[in-house]
Design a protein around this nucleic acid. Structure first.
Lengths: 239, 239
DNA sequence: TCGCCATGAGTAACATGTTACTACCCTTAT
DNA sequence: ATAAGGGTAGTAACATGTTACTCATGGCGA
């Protein structure tokens, strides 16, 4: 059984730092709509909104800037960035390259406890679908993917994907609502888990590929700018 | 022709910040042996060695800590970390997953100018071999790989690999000297470039895989701790 | 000789102060 | 009306101050 605490770069047994808590606060603010993409904010204002000094806030935003989630503008402020079609396509390509082999590996390594944990998340997804709670749905979707990655046993891969996910979460949230395909996304995970149960590595990989490509296309369709040629970029980076 | 400036997250046309310069200074310090892995340093000391305040130094080190190059210890200082066998294996696995497809893509997209640029680096590698200059060798090796990645057209992949390389550069430097296989590593690049010239994508991918696996095993042999079972980890994460 | 505890030096993490720069606004001349 | 220009508010980047913690060291008793 792979422990699920996800301590890749491992920080603290001690309480999380203010920087860590600020990172979470920003993520939450974006989820909740308090921080609007494209809008200009400042470390000053955010710092006293959160009731902390500028240092941890600045550090937190710099880390988020590394993943491309926010962008600083010198002497102006920072913005929450939502990724364009190009960036989304690139991210999907990376996820395909890393998560498909991870799924294959997971199929080989999973024991009964792992499979049970995956099922739990899967059922929680189903519950979120019927409840129409897309926030919860995305949360369990993420957890399921993360569990799979941890099963594969490569902490670097887990961290990389986690970072990329951050950059896209924003698009995902607004996308799924519109296309009301929440249930479709849910269904796509079934073949993955079934293959895991059978220990069928190739099938698990194929199912994961199919899932990522499908949701990838979905994301792109929503996030596309008029100038971007999706088909061209897709074949260029993915196929 | 893909432009080689590699501005993925893109910063400034303006002069680089003190933080940026500090990051480079730390990298250089490690290369030059001024900063010894495992030794305990402090932001205080490093700051006035560099003649700047603690803020940019701290920010620089935090960024390097993200990639795993250094590690902070609360109220103690920070250390330059050299990766263990486990981490090296994980990194090799990621490089295989990303750089093999990138080589295939590059084979399709490369034009005459791209191929010429690759040849230039390749010949510079050869020159470094005969000159016995391993620093220069590693530099051109890196440039060649980066060129290939940029050719593939996925800036995220380029950035990810670049970060991983940072974590391993240290091991690579000490490794190659001992095993005096500098020339072997040089030779391994030949089939890649040949395949590129023919526009033969599968061959380019296969050559890249072979190269990464070979140098990967080399790295592991040097960096291994007595308690680590290389073979087990290798099959677990790579094959 | 050995263990224990107080103490102090040194640190990361956090807070606050400073600087140089940018864009915006309002005035004024054309 | 429109353009030019100076002033000002607000900012990131950098510098410095403060706090709470960790660990080594040395004295002191057994």
């Amino acid at each position: 059984m792979v422990h699920s605490t996800a301590d890749a770069g491992n920080r603290q047994v001690r309480p999380p730092t203010l920087t860590d808590r600020t990172i979470e606060a920003v993520r939450e603010g974006i989820r909740a709509g308090t921080l609007v993409p494209g809008e200009l904010y400042s470390v000053y204002r955010l710092a006293d909104e959160l009731g902390v000094s500028r240092s941890p806030v600045r550090e937190a935003l710099l880390r988020l800037a590394e993943t491309g989630m926010v962008a600083f503008e010198r002497n102006r402020g920072f913005r929450v960035v939502l990724p364009g079609a190009r960036e989304l396509t690139e991210i999907i390509a990376v996820r395909l390259a890393l998560e498909v082999p991870a799924a294959e590996r997971a199929a080989v390594r999973a024991d009964a406890a792992d499979r049970a944990a995956l099922r739990t998340e899967y059922e929680a997804m189903q519950a979120s679908v019927t409840a129409g709670d897309e926030t919860a749905f995305l949360l369990h979707d993420q957890r399921l993917h993360t569990l799979l990655l941890e099963l594969a046993g490569n902490a670097h891969v887990t961290r990389i994907i986690e970072n990329l996910r951050d950059a896209t979460r924003l698009v995902g949230a607004s996308t799924i609502r519109k296309s009301r395909s929440l249930e479709d996304v849910y269904r796509e995970h079934r073949p993955i888990l079934d293959a895991l149960d059978r220990g069928d590595a190739p099938a698990a990989g194929a199912a994961m590929r199919s899932h990522l490509e499908s949701t990838g296309r979905l994301l792109l369709r929503e996030a596309v700018g008029s100038g971007d040629d999706i088909g061209l970029m897709w074949t260029d980076l993915i196929e």
